[in-house]
Write a protein that binds this DNA or RNA. Structure first.
Lengths: 228, 228
DNA sequence: CCAGTGTTCCACAAAATTTTGGAGGATGTG
DNA sequence: CACATCCTCCAAAATTTTGTGGAACACTGG
């Protein structure tokens, strides 16, 4: 009971899961999968990887139990294994952001934020605030992610308006109503860009704090299916 | 905003934290540190590592922001950086246990459990049950970890009775009262062994569900300091 | 200031992971 | 059945990580 060799074996086994999240590309794949299932082909393209390399990384994630697969015809769709995996990913991101200055720097750089500028509180809406306003119909919520991700899961009542199409479909938005845009999560640029675009057009717009990932983890309800 | 290179850089940075928990020996070190601060020397001995190897692993953990150091005279004590790190560790362990059959096998093997035998529910006490009984003074709670760990943090009202000393100090236990033993956490063997030993001596004993790690994460109060 | 202890830094060899291209398997289509 | 598509498996090359001694460094006590 409890000898050296078995102890090492146990920790090595757990480390397999750690190793799986110990590679930037695999985290990127996981980040994509959190938004919905995808084929190997799509994942490879989105993460800028060769097909075989992507496949190899996905095998590592699969053997660590973090993702599952589903075959449909000739394609194989990958998916995160469950909410616990999303929680692990989020916790990893939280620790990284809170504890490592380089991570914050890289994030600010990626999001194009000026770390010296004070955060503009009025540009963000909390989840609670959004729910309250949405109940009264006082706000238009737009999901600026690609349509497939919207279809997989979205904030109840939100409309799909992918960033690509936003500029040409400004007319679809109701007049004189505040717009709240959201995207994948805390590290997603789409909503930032959407809000900038809307502001340039004189539309009063705000960004939802974080995004779908955190909405999910908060245990808030989610809708799925085709756009209305 | 949001170009390929910066995205890769961001995920690679986050992966540094993932890599840190992607090695069995580092997990073992983390597991020790969760129970309290320790010098490099002690850590190396406990994890069965060379001094320089242990030091190297600790550097990786430190650069990932998972542990902090404190100098006291000639020694350097390592410590986990915060509750968020413990939460990450626990989440990793939970996912590993739930999602990977090999992890469960390794755990059962390490703990000496028979995976085919039904779990003996009566052998375990939940945290809630323990708190209720402890309030009435109907139970003797013993902490069977090494004394330093007890001193660093323990369940309020528990007595320190390290497994090493248990056999010779049976007389210290009050007669005719149930004994509940606990140790480090779900993967710690000490409490299992303590309960076995007590049963052999005819003492009615049970094991606390999980251990100090989970107690901590449940947000329950903790005491520290010398043994009473 | 010197000796001694505890720890980190450095450099090298060993081991593991990642990438890549090609072969091969499963499924669907004409 | 032949053929196309999508993906996995395999093996070799490129890159990282790990383990291990010795040198260097920081602090303490004399």
């Amino acid at each position: 009971m409890g000898d050296r060799q078995k102890k090492t074996e146990l920790f090595d086994q757990i480390a397999r899961v750690g190793k799986a999240v110990g590679n930037g590309k695999r985290l990127e794949l996981l980040d994509l999968l959190v938004q919905g299932e995808r084929s190997v082909e799509k994942l490879a393209a989105a993460a800028d990887l060769g097909l075989t390399t992507a496949s190899a990384h996905l095998q590592v994630l699969r053997q660590a139990g973090l993702v599952t697969t589903r075959r449909e015809g000739t394609k194989i769709y990958y998916n995160v294994a469950g909410l616990d995996v999303i929680r692990l990913y989020e916790q990893l991101r939280a620790v990284a952001t809170d504890r490592v200055a380089d991570v914050r720097r890289a994030r600010d750089d990626y999001l194009g934020l000026d770390p010296t500028a004070p955060v503009d509180q009025t540009a963000e809406t909390s989840r609670e605030e959004l729910l309250a306003k949405a109940a009264d119909g006082r706000v238009t919520v737009i999901d600026v992610r690609p349509r497939e991700e919207y279809e997989f899961a979205h904030v109840p009542g939100a409309r799909s308006l992918p960033l690509d199409e936003l500029a040409e479909r400004l007319g679809d938005l109701p007049e004189d109503q505040e717009v709240v845009a959201y995207c994948r999560g805390a590290y997603c640029v789409l909503a930032y860009e959407a809000v900038n675009l809307l502001h340039d057009q004189g539309v009063p717009a705000r960004r939802l704090q974080d995004g779908m990932l955190e909405w999910h983890l908060s245990g808030l309800p989610v809708e799925n299916g085709q756009a209305a």
